[in-house]
Design a binder for these strands. Sequence first.
DNA 1: TTTCGAAATGAATGATATTCATTATTTCTG
DNA 2: CAGAAATAATGAATATCATTCATTTCGAAA
Lengths: 253, 253
Amino acid sequence: MARLSASTARSARGKPAANGAGTKRTRRERVADKEDAIVAAAYDIILAKGLARTTIAEIARRAGVAEGTVYLYFENKDALGQAVLAAFYARLTARAAAGVKKHAGVRAKLRFLARHHLESIMRESAILEMIAITDRNSEAYEGSALYRMNKDYVAVFDAVFRDGVLAGDIAKDKPLWIMRDVFFGGLEYAMRTIMVRGRKKNVDDAVAGIVDLIIPASAPAAAENDLARLTGRLETVAMKLESVAANKRAVRS
Amino acid sequence: MARLSASTARSARGKPAANGAGTKRTRRERVADKEDAIVAAAYDIILAKGLARTTIAEIARRAGVAEGTVYLYFENKDALGQAVLAAFYARLTARAAAGVKKHAGVRAKLRFLARHHLESIMRESAILEMIAITDRNSEAYEGSALYRMNKDYVAVFDAVFRDGVLAGDIAKDKPLWIMRDVFFGGLEYAMRTIMVRGRKKNVDDAVAGIVDLIIPASAPAAAENDLARLTGRLETVAMKLESVAANKRAVRS
DNA sequence: TTTCGAAATGAATGATATTCATTATTTCTG
DNA sequence: CAGAAATAATGAATATCATTCATTTCGAAA
């Protein structure tokens, strides 16, 4: 993926990309390494300061190249940001796919996905911001690299969701696209709320709450739960009433 | 609100803000008008091109002032962006509050809020982007202007939600904060999806789908609903009894 | 070793945000 | 009302970057 963006950038500047034809391997490898070094440097700095406050000069310094060299690999600052975003998505997707395999049952898979997503965006919220920034320029969003990356990522969720529908765990009348947007959008907003309040328990609550919207915690269970609470409450009130009545009697005598 | 940011910016630069004490009205008004003109100019241009591609020079030209004058009213470009965001939120909140009054029933109110939110952010998505940008700098997000504006806005949703819970239309076990984040977050993500696909019907579907997550449409929830109402009723009675009992005890002692 | 294209360099350029010394306008005072 | 003081406004100068490009270095093939 990183490869792609580099060759794209280079060929866009008019220089033919060195294809496998005659060139040797090592040369290309060295080029690839340098590109990775630039993306890695950019990743670290952007994560720490956000894209706006990150300068090309600083990235170049950290990557051990001259400023101009960055522009040999990336068309401009935004393209470099895209590459960083691509790296983020690549890891995110890989971890999501791997984690889903490790969990059994639709609910457990969704919970894993929710927690993984929430924790990832909390940890790397500065990277996430670039999505909005990039979004903008792309009236032709579809077909863009960002679009494809995101599509690959949410495909992990989609697969779990479809399995859930087939297995009967998820109601058939819930449209996938809406549930998907609620899932990821809800988690993103929950992140903001959680970062203002404390973290710990709130992450658990958000994960549970959002997953439960997709797979309702078995309705009968909820009803029972309510019933149990109602019963308990009734007992308490009854005891109080009884003691009040007892007091009255005591006072009167 | 706009007033606030101006005086803040000015006093931040060391010049004392002219307070109501001795100064006449007209002067302050003229200042206020100029500030509004700058915000309005910025609003239009940012809406059309996004903050990054909007220059102070262009804003100043459109507002009919010199570049330097902009800095008399706003600390820097970001602060001006904040003011634009504040104007956006102010209208958004006003329309939301007014619309909620016009609709009867929790479901209708929520549907109105959802559609209004979705259409607003679709129309002014360039403004929305600034939220993320601004978000960043604010480790001290709480207490920030953005935080307050957002709080005021979602308060409209919160009130409807609480009414819904009291009326028994919304299950008590759904935490408000999570439902709120799912509502707004889901709508924001839905916007992206809708802007890639076609619009028309998708807006309706998103609105209906997301509202239904908060107030389940299914009639079969009648039993649960009944139980919820019963629970609510008992709670009310219990509280009354308890306060009566408490009073008696207080009077007696 | 020489040669040539690919890579890399970093000083120069251009676009903007931001500052500040100067000028204009308004209000106040006697 | 004239002049002084306080406020506002101006726009040229400065600072900070992104981006370009003429020049240099490197690597491998002859």
